[in-house]
């Protein structure tokens, strides 16, 4: 009887869904996108001056901008600053986080400072950074590291602290040396935390790089956007925005893929 009820209740729903391709997720996504672009195009044409970015204008300049050497070099500089900054943050942030997570003295000493710096808006220290590093690429790198470092170290600390005692007991029982325990147990056990920290850090690093370029006026996607906006080339500026969005989204996708591929166990705990 239960089986019958279930079958009866179920059958109408899939039928209704199957009958119409209009409700398929892919169609809805594309349709909503087209509608939004049309509204944008229409509003700009009706009310805004000619230089304001609109979809048709972006499409028109897209090929030229994407193959423009100046644009490519700007993109390369911003992205390499983000990647190098993230790399530095991963290495040192993880080291500091693990030290805090596993050594009580370090944790007690550093906790308030790391938490405060994690909460500090990096834009607020930007003027100071330019004083320390000068108006150059080092200032941008410093802002990226500052933006990314603390979300990684905070997560590494949480990860190292949440290593189940059972694992450490097993390691001790099998006579693991401290550095073996670090690489065999603390590191893999903290990986889900580290990836969560990295996801957060990547977003902050990207923001940091762009804001630093605005402020310091060094070549990069942020500066490209600023310069083109001020010279009424909004379509060109918008392509840099699209590239930044694409980078952010692909990084997110990369981390999700890594988690699924290499940490299949992490979701089961």
């Amino acid at each position: 009887m239960t089986a019958q009820t279930v079958a009866a209740a179920r059958s109408p729903v899939p039928d209704a869904e199957r009958s119409s391709w209009v409700t398929s997720p892919l169609f809805l996504k594309i349709a909503a996108g087209i509608v939004l672009l049309l509204i944008w195009e229409g509003v700009v044409r009706a009310f805004a001056p000619g230089y304001v970015a609109k979809p048709s204008g972006i499409v028109r300049v897209f090929a030229a901008v994407i193959s423009d050497r100046q644009f490519l070099s700007a993109a390369g500089q911003t992205l390499s600053a983000v990647l190098i900054g993230l790399l530095i943050s991963i290495v040192f942030g993880t080291a500091v986080g693990f030290a805090m997570g596993r050594i009580n003295v370090v944790e007690r000493g550093l906790r308030y400072y790391v938490n405060s710096l994690f909460a500090t808006p990096m834009i607020a220290i930007l003027p100071l950074v330019t004083l320390w590093f000068g108006y150059n690429a080092d200032a941008r790198l410093a802002v990226v590291v500052f933006a990314a470092f603390f979300s990684i170290s905070t997560n590494a600390c949480d990860g190292a602290r949440s290593v189940p005692l059972e694992y450490l007991e097993v390691a001790q029982s099998f006579r693991a040396r401290p550095f073996q325990t670090l690489f065999d147990i603390i590191f893999p056990s903290s990986l889900p935390y580290l990836l969560a920290g990295l996801r957060l850090a990547a977003g902050r690093a990207l923001v940091g790089a762009v804001v630093a370029e605005f402020f310091v006026s060094i070549p990069g996607l942020g500066y490209y956007i600023l310069y083109n906006s001020r010279t009424f080339k909004h379509n060109e500026a918008f392509i840099a925005v699209i590239v930044l969005v694409a980078v952010g989204v692909s990084f997110e996708a990369l981390i999700n893929w890594l988690t699924r591929r290499y940490l299949p166990w992490a979701r089961r705990d």
Binding site: E166, E169, F174, R175, L263
Partner: peptide, 19 residues
Amino acid sequence: TSPREGVAMVFQHFGLFPW
């Protein structure tokens, strides 16, 4: 005084590493 060679333990909680 500390875990030594020649002794091995099987745990109630299994203690397997999920990764």
